[in-house]
Design a protein around this nucleic acid. Structure first.
Lengths: 224, 224, 224, 224
DNA sequence: TATGAATGAGACTTCATTCAT
DNA sequence: GATGAATGAAGTCTCATTCAT
């Protein structure tokens, strides 16, 4: 509830089930506004993921949400506002990825999860589409920069702990390592939809093995 | 005629200004076809870099090149073909980057050059915009996939040689190493326009140092 | 709601002129959807009749109807759909022609009416323009084929009844007779706009007389 | 050689075979102009038949003829002139159809030939496409009216002879009969490309049988 | 609260035409 | 005699946005 994004606050406020059926209800339906807004955001993510930013029109978003065109400009001042809301909304589900654990082996889990998300989740596909757009919309860029750096900081924290435990090489500072790992993940995001065969499960395993090997302390220094 | 790509042979053949005004003239024109085509490609790259794919209209490209809209569809069957040509054109300049040399120290040169390209050159900014689009245009995707894999192969070849010479660790296969380095570069491309401060010169140096360190053979195995 | 075709229920519902000027107004409009649609169809018929299919642009149709281009693609997915709707609409008015009666003398009425329609009504002039186009648009062709065959069947039914009553020769099957009469009518449609003098009233009478004479039972077999 | 159309006069003037090969010839190539013009006309007919009038662009015609766009406006002042020339050219091959003979049975031949021509010959398919256009181009209309009436006159002449011989009913004037038969043929032209199944060989035979039966003198009056 | 008719600008594309070469 | 680069208008269609209802 202490989140930055407004979008999350709303998605939970589903109208209480005490209300009458949709037809024939009386009075002002409380909470509907936010629920509808969230519905539109989800529809927007789906459409951007499916058609790219250039191909995502408000009409398609409205249709996807089962609304009419007018509804969108009713809920959002204009397209830009809607897209901004979408980006915030997407990041709200993002942090969970780092909760995978602090063991070295958990790097594997995280990276695998990353590849999966990028293959299947509308959220991350749309996210990448909007990233391209962010270059031209400073507002979007700010959101991305903020959220990404937070992610790298947490990763650096984990790596620092692992270095202290002797599980990860300590001849490179943890924030640099975090940066490189993050970059690899970003690079995968870029190319995954284009070179799918490069990301066959066995190859992804090999790539992750290599990353973990690169993180290991030099032979002589290894613990045990 | 001995060039690799024809597209690179650019508009040096500008005619002397003995002609009427540039605007509005008809009939068989000055200059050769290839030069005009290249001019349009450069204009396209500029506009895509400035406005993103979604904002890059043929009108803008034509204007940027000092032509009318019709000229573009005269040189290219349609927008898709033009953009395809742009991608190819960008990669033509790209291949030269691998010619930087086979020494380990040359990895540094290449990576620095990469960051510079991504910071300053319209080419790679446009390239990333188109990459996002490639997800929805199989033809673009095919070009990217083809060119990228060629790049990685050459890089893997260099790394294999360096492994044989004992300059690079050989506990990870060269194609996996090439893949990871390429991914890092891709990841930089993605975030560079958004997190410029993350790519300050000193930090880039530190990142590259780290990559080279990661490539080194484990202490015990080092030559000399 | 008890209508056969909705398209026929036309723009009688014009609203009182209590509104601002027609041009430039926005928001929820006067009149009902069906009426506006019909208005556009009529405009389309007029333009096609005046300028031919090749010369009938959406712009012109919109202008004729007092709308902007966008309105047309609001009511019809694309030009093809609009033209398809026009053909259907024309045929809706067409079916009524067969209701002229079942007497032999009614063939005269019908054929005269046909010539009149082709001389004066935008409908059939447009119809012929579209017929030429149908060769290259299977969807149009399908509509024509369907409607024409329905027409011939009804005509054949009438002729069969007349044969049974001994009013029409029965040495030729009714569907063949219907086909030939229909073909004559089609032939007139084709040439009427080009050889107007060939279709002077007296000559049309003579042609129709001849058709009726051709339909008569051979002398010996005549009833009475 | 006493033809009206200029196009025929030219098609015969193929350059004498005494000329050298196309490459390396000297002097002004006599007759080439007309030969090239005819080549363009044929290409025009092909394209109009294939794509309809609306779809027939000068570019396509030029391409079909193996020329460049400019060639067409070199040979013809503009598109209208080219199309006018095409119509004249088409009719030049037309009269031959009436040369089928003067017997009653020859009506069958003629009508069958007509159906065949309309099914397979580019000439007549293009002819019908242009007919639709003629409504809006008085020049075209004049050509059609002239040529058609000439055709009907010849047909009436044949029928008059057959009436005199007692082979055809004489209770309807020959020009009216000729008009009706011509109309049927026109009607077939219109619908043939759209209702192909209606013109299966057996059915065409039945239709023609019926026409011949309609032409027969009433039973009591028949000769023999 | 939400609809949906309509706008008007602008997108891509095709075309007839022009004209230096 | 013929080419082909380029124009500029027009064509079809899509879109964000507005606003009466």
């Amino acid at each position: 509830m202490s989140e930055t994004g407004t979008a999350t606050r709303t998605a939970v406020t589903e109208r209480p089930a005490t209300k009458a059926a949709t037809r024939g209800r009386r009075g002002r339906p409380v909470g509907d506004r936010e629920a509808q807004r969230t519905k539109l955001l989800r529809a927007g993510i789906k459409v951007i993921a499916d058609e790219g930013y250039a191909g995502a029109s408000l009409r398609k978003v409205a249709k996807q949400a089962g609304h009419t065109t007018g509804a969108i400009t009713y809920y959002f001042a204009d397209k830009e506002e809607m897209v901004g809301a979408i980006i915030e909304f997407m990041f709200d589900g993002f942090d969970s990825m780092l909760d995978s654990g602090d063991e070295v082996a958990d790097h594997r889990k995280r990276l695998k999860r990353w590849v999966e998300l990028n293959s299947n989740s509308d959220g991350w596909i749309a996210g990448f589409q909007l990233l391209a757009r962010a270059r031209h919309e400073p507002k979007f860029a700010a959101i991305y920069a903020d959220r990404y750096s937070r992610y790298r900081e947490r990763l650096a924290g984990i790596l620092a702990k692992q270095q202290a435990a002797g599980d990860v090489r300590n001849d490179i500072s943890p924030d640099i390592l975090a940066d490189l790992i993050g970059s690899i993940a970003d690079g995968w995001t870029i190319m995954l939809p284009i070179e799918i065969e490069r990301f066959a499960p066995e190859r992804v395993d090999a790539l992750i093995d290599a990353i973990i090997k690169l993180l290991q302390p030099p032979v002589a220094a290894r613990k045990g």
